[in-house]
Amino acid sequence: MAALTLLGAINQALDQKLADDERVVVFGEDTGFEGGVFRVTAGLQKKYGEDRVFDTPIAEAAITGSAVGMAINGLIPIAEIQFDGFVFPGYTEIVTHMARYRNRTRGRYGLPIVVRFPVGGGIRALEHHSESLETLLGHIPGLKVVMPSTPYDAKGLMISAIEDPDPVIFMEPKRIYRAGKQEVPEEMYRIPIGKAKVVKKGKDMTVVAWGPIVREVVKAMELIKDENIDIELIDLRTINPIDEETIINSVKKTGRFLVVQEAVKTYGPGAELISLVNEKAFLHLEAAPARVTGYDITVPLAKGEHYHFVQPERIAAEILKVAKF
């Protein structure tokens, strides 16, 4: 067992599936020779050759459209979009073909595709480089949408995504690519898509987050540790499908619910989760469900970026508000 970063865990998962199944191909802008902007695919082209790990033109629609054609013809494509904001040019192929193929063939055929890309802010990047697209992709029937928060989860979820018979959007939080290491088994293992993780059990309040925000919630909990609020922290891990059972069972136990997301507030995943809690655990609530989110603005450029993001102090204040309702 080795200590890996989140980036290293994804690289190991790709490496092992390339070795395990000759149908797997990895491609995208600078994905081959350079190993990607963040070096997530570093070393893979040298090991497996240009036929299986290769660079593409700067053409996201061609990348996602080619993935559809490859999957129809028996390959298992893993397509990289260089940055989150570059998904938009490839969105047509994702929605009109990739997500609909199972329905279009009346359930007879799926498209085993992984579309992976770095997501979110935190690296003081340019415009179109810091988007949180959970709503845009999680809203589409036929797509599974995943965002890991730890190296261990990243590897297990990536292997499950590659082996899934239908398309999976794999969002990689760029600001925690190298934010610490975790022991990760060297052998292949799988984490089920659609299953949340209870990071910490508690009895007073349920807090749900995913991706890099899980760490911010942990920091917030440390800020108010003297308040003796026993929080149950759930890492959603999968945006779609949502693990309703884990969330509802937790809220029925705690009676209080808070969701924290980096994405903008309006129409975000937090609203969906609050609706879910209201529909299925309303009579167990002792306080109104709440959310802490990014603001309804375009992500600011470098100097103002941190004002947009959810800070531990904001999370801590909302936890206290819900707890004392």
Rank of each mutant, 00 (worst) to 15 (best):
A3F: 15
L4D: 08
I10A: 12
N11E: 05
Q12I: 08
A13F: 02
D21P: 05
D21M: 04
R23P: 09
R23H: 08
V24H: 01
E29K: 12
D30R: 06
E34M: 15
E34C: 11
G36I: 06
V37A: 15
F38K: 01
V40E: 09
G43R: 09
G49Y: 03
R52Y: 12
D55Q: 02
D55F: 04
D55S: 01
I58A: 11
A61C: 12
A62V: 13
I63D: 03
G69N: 06
A71Y: 08
N73F: 08
G74Q: 08
I76E: 00
I76N: 04
I81S: 05
Q82A: 10
V87N: 13
G90R: 04
Y91F: 15
I94W: 02
T96A: 15
Y101L: 09
T105Y: 03
Y109C: 11
G110K: 09
L111I: 08
L111Q: 06
V114P: 00
G120Y: 01
G121D: 01
G122N: 04
G122T: 03
H128M: 13
S130N: 05
L133I: 14
L137K: 03
L143C: 05
P148E: 11
D153M: 09
I159L: 00
A161M: 01
D164F: 07
D166I: 07
D166Q: 10
D166H: 12
E172A: 10
Y177H: 11
R178G: 02
A179K: 10
K181S: 11
Q182L: 11
E183R: 14
E186P: 03
K195G: 04
K200M: 13
K201Q: 14
G202Y: 04
D204E: 03
V207T: 06
V207N: 02
P212D: 00
V214F: 07
K219D: 13
A220F: 08
A220L: 07
A220Q: 02
M221F: 10
L223S: 10
I224A: 04
E227H: 15
T238W: 04
I247A: 08
N249R: 13
N249Q: 13
V251R: 04
K253N: 13
V260N: 04
E262V: 05
K265I: 13
T266G: 10
G268K: 09
G268Y: 10
P269C: 09
P269R: 09
G270S: 09
G270D: 08
L276C: 05
V277H: 01
L283S: 15
H284A: 15
H284S: 15
A287P: 03
A287C: 04
P289K: 03
V292A: 06
I297L: 14
P300S: 04
V310T: 07
E313T: 13
R314S: 11
L320F: 03
K321V: 00
